[in-house]
Nucleic acid binder design. Sequence first.
DNA 1: TTATAATATATTGGTTCGATATATCTAAAG
DNA 2: CTTTAGATATATCGAACCAATATATTATAA
Lengths: 191, 191
Amino acid sequence: MDVKTLCLGVLKLGDATGYEIKKQFEEGPFAYFNQAGFGSIYPALNALLNDGMVTCRDERQQGRPDKKVYRLTAAGEAALTAALHGRPALDKLRSDTIFMLFFAEMLDETHLRATYDGYLSYFRSCFEHVRSLDNTGITPGRLFVRDLGAEFYETMATYLAEHRERFFAELDAHQKAESTAKTGTGMGTGR
Amino acid sequence: MDVKTLCLGVLKLGDATGYEIKKQFEEGPFAYFNQAGFGSIYPALNALLNDGMVTCRDERQQGRPDKKVYRLTAAGEAALTAALHGRPALDKLRSDTIFMLFFAEMLDETHLRATYDGYLSYFRSCFEHVRSLDNTGITPGRLFVRDLGAEFYETMATYLAEHRERFFAELDAHQKAESTAKTGTGMGTGR
DNA sequence: TTATAATATATTGGTTCGATATATCTAAAG
DNA sequence: CTTTAGATATATCGAACCAATATATTATAA
C-alpha cells in the first residue's frame, strides 16, 4: 500500500485536507497501523488529482489559512477497491525500543528504565484511547480493527507491566555474573 | 535507527556478510521488529567500512561466490552504544492486511477470507517458530524480546482464530441490512 | 536436461521520510 | 499587554530507504 492508496482510504471516510489526512494517521482510526508524513501526502494528493482519482475545492476560512479539501471520485473509489483486492504485503514493523531492549546489557540502567517505562505508558495510553471511543454505528470492519488494536495494546501493556521487575532483576544478576567471570575469583574489587 | 545502526547491531552478535545480515532480518532474532533490504545493507556496510566502524575480509569459498565478511571495530561498538542511548522513535508499523480488514465491506468474500486466514496462519507460524528456539545461554535482553514476541504472536493468532466466525457473521448481517436499506421495503428483488 | 532454489554481491529508479520554511490565529504565561 | 508557544494549513528538499533486477555459481529436484 503506497501513500496514494492510503490517502484514497482516508478520503473514503469523508472529504479531507492534507493536514487532516495526516492527523488520521496520528490520532484517527489508522493510527499505529499505517502512517504517512506531509512529504508523502501532498505529492500523493497532487498525483491523485492529476489522475482524476480525487477532486479539490478551495475553502477560505475566517482567520486560518485557506484549505484545499479533497474528495474521492468514482475512479478513485474504483482504484481503492482494486488495491484492496491485491495481495497484502507482510506487516512491516520498525521498533527502536525493541532493538534497544534486545541490547539491554549495553545500556545504562537509567536509560533502560526510562525507555522501558516510556514504552509501557505509550501502550497504556493507546489502550485508554481506543477504549474511550464510541463504537455505535461503526461498520464491522472498523470495529474489528479497533478491537484487534485494543487487544494488542492491552497485551503489550500488561506484559510489560508484569515482567518489569523480573526483567530488571535478571539483568542485574546477569551483569553481576559477568563481572564475576571477568575478575575470575569472584572476590575482585571491581574495575 | 537507520540501517547503519541496525547493521552494527547484527554485527555485535558476530561477524557476518551482507547476505547473512539480511537473513537476520528475515529469520533471525530481529525478524518482525526490524528489517532491511540489500539496497540499504550494502551501501550501509560500505559507509561503515569507510568510517572505520567495521573491517572487512575477503573469503574465497569452494564453489560458492566469494564472501565479504564484516567485523565490528571498537569504534563501531562505541557508535552502536551511542545510538542505543538516544531517544527511541515511536514504533512504526505498516500493515496492508489491517488496512484491508478495515475496509472489509468493500472486499469480495473470497478475497477477504483468504486475507484473514493468511494473516492468522502467518502469526501461527511466527509463534511456532519462536517456541521452537532454544533459550539456553541467551542474554536477558534477547530472551525478553523473544518472549515478548511470542506473547504478541500468540495474542494475534488467538484473537483472529476466536473472532473469525463472529466477524464474518456480522459482516454478512451488515451487508444484508445495507442492501435492504437500499431497496427500501426489504422485499426488493436485488440488483 | 531443465528448472528451481540457495548462496552472494551490487545497482538503479522510484518512494518515502524528516526537517524545514512560510503564514495566521488562539491561548497561555509573564 | 506582550511575548511565547501551540494549533491550523500547505509545501519542498535532500537524505534515506525499498523493490526489483542483474550477475554468477552450485545443489537439488523434476
